[in-house]
């Protein structure tokens, strides 16, 4: 087909020159780490991921997350192909030991969220003088 190339013409670059300066295009990292009062929240952007595509391992104070979008192997007649994030493996060194039993993970709208709590072992202890 001769005309497919322009069937959906990307005009973002054209638009960018007209929009107000406060609007900027951000290049974002797809991981976010936040620590607050003994609770760690790690978020990953995993668009298209199903629960079975994700593997989370917690070992000592290392968090390993790997992701492989298995069901996305079908070949298409692409006019434009930009989406690439169908697999990754990341290891994060945690700042302290966490409680494995209190770890929780959720997946919603392509965002994986892992919440970890500081292990009681890592909490400061008051030592009484006898």
């Amino acid at each position: 087909m001769l005309t497919t190339y322009n069937v959906l013409q990307d005009i973002n670059s054209l638009l960018e020159s007209f929009i107000e300066p406060r609007h900027t295009v951000h290049e974002l990292s797809n991981v976010d780490f936040e620590e607050k009062e003994g609770e760690i929240t790690v978020k990953y952007l995993v668009p298209g991921a199903k629960i079975e595509d994700i593997d989370i391992q917690l070992e000592n104070n290392t968090l390993k997350v790997s992701y492989d979008r298995k069901n996305d192997t079908k070949e298409h007649r692409y006019i434009r192909k930009e989406r690439t994030s169908n697999r990754f493996a990341r290891t994060i060194k945690l700042p302290y030991k966490v409680d494995g039993d209190a770890a929780a993970a959720s997946l919603k709208e392509g965002v994986l969220r892992i919440v970890l709590k500081k292990s009681p072992d890592a909490l400061p202890k008051k030592i009484t003088i006898k």
Binding site: V7, L8, N12, V25, I79, K81, S85
Partner: peptide, 17 residues
């Protein structure tokens, strides 16, 4: 608003894109 350009795929199928 901070605008992000989403990665996009476009492909062709029998009766539609």
């Amino acid at each position: 608003y901070n605008y992000i350009t989403p990665a996009t795929d476009i492909y062709e199928e029998e009766g539609h894109f």
